[in-house]
Design a protein around this nucleic acid. Structure first.
Length: 305
DNA sequence: TTCCAGGGTAACG
DNA sequence: CGTTACCATGGA
């Protein structure tokens, strides 16, 4: 991340956003889950605690000027190297590196996307920069409705994660692989997760503690298909979860969770059908999305919430 | 009561 | 290789 993209003002950071960026659209996306536990939104501002090594800065993100987001530290500002990591995290979270102009050009003439890019102009794929969190969230969300998935995530975070307090408010941080690696399925009693999901989460934690799965390894594969294969080898990760992680964490623009029920329902809704499209039909409808499947999926999801 | 949720595995043919 | 039972809970 180049230095001219952001400004370090010690107590706050200024992140200069691209033209195709609308803070409110991203805020609307982030507001869709009332049960979210890893950040909160109040008066158009996002509050979140981050974990940078042993530091846990709490930040407030707002859009005070048209061309820059302000990241303000609650409490004492952390050291320079932490401020830099925070800028990096927020930059990644909002996907500010991607030039989405080509996506808009393609989408303008697309049967399914033209309305989406008009309605949600400036929306970015809000990511999950932490790989362990992204994989766990994918596993948790398998085959259950989204509100319940958020409930399970909250229980997992509040049972095994960390909490930092400031000014009487609590800010939760997602557990690390180390926090889960020595657990057994019995430790998850009361969370109401399936036994298999517990096994999957512990298994992924083990892999990451052993250094057998890192973001760098997935990036180093070079292409989407190799990264997908690497993920699918892991117990509990199938095609949907792999592509979901590659989309929201590794930010492969052509990651495509084609088995996603939300995507199916969005297409059904847009086409005014009473049944969900077949996989063959989705492949036909998405033929022009090549290279932008992740953004297309993310924009279509917005019709559902 | 039944069916569907941001699926995946294991055990079959 | 394709198909199927099963997981486990909540909401419509």
């Amino acid at each position: 991340m180049e230095k001219e993209k952001w400004l370090d003002c010690h107590q706050e950071l200024k992140l200069f956003v691209p033209k195709e960026f609308n803070f409110d659209e991203n805020l609307k996306y982030l507001s869709r889950a009332s049960n979210e536990c890893l950040f909160s939104i109040k008066d158009q501002r996002i509050y979140k605690a981050l974990a940078i090594e042993n530091e846990t800065p709490i930040i407030e993100i707002s859009m005070e000027k048209v061309d820059a987001m302000t990241v303000r530290f609650l409490g004492e500002a952390p050291p320079e190297w932490v401020r830099s990591a925070v800028a990096q995290y927020v930059w990644e979270w909002f996907d500010l590196d991607t030039d989405i102009v080509p996506f808009y050009e393609m989408a303008q003439h697309d049967e399914l996307l033209s309305k989406a890019v008009d309605s949600f102009y400036g929306l970015r794929i809000m990511g999950i920069p932490d790989l362990f969190e992204a994989v766990c969230w994918g596993i948790i969300g398998q085959q259950i409705n989204l509100p319940f998935a958020y409930t399970l995530k909250r229980r997992l975070v509040e049972t095994f994660g960390r909490c930092v307090e400031f000014d009487g408010e609590q800010y939760w941080i997602f557990p690390t692989p180390n926090d889960l690696v020595d657990l057994t399925v019995g430790d998850f009693d009361g969370l109401q997760m399936t036994v298999k999901k517990c096994e999957y989460l512990i298994g992924v934690a083990k892999l990451m503690v052993e250094g057998k799965l890192t973001k760098e390894m997935l990036m180093a594969t070079g292409d989407l298909k190799s990264a997908e294969k690497m993920l699918i080898k892991i117990r509990g990760i199938g095609p949907w979860t792999a592509n979901y992680v590659l989309m929201r964490c590794l930010r492969f623009p052509s990651a495509f969770p084609i088995d996603d029920v939300g995507l199916h329902n969005a297409i059904k809704h847009l086409l005014g059908r009473d049944t969900k499209p077949s996989k063959e039909e989705i492949l036909y409808l998405s033929a022009n999305w090549s290279g932008w499947e992740a953004y297309a999926t993310f924009y279509l999801w917005r019709f559902l919430y």
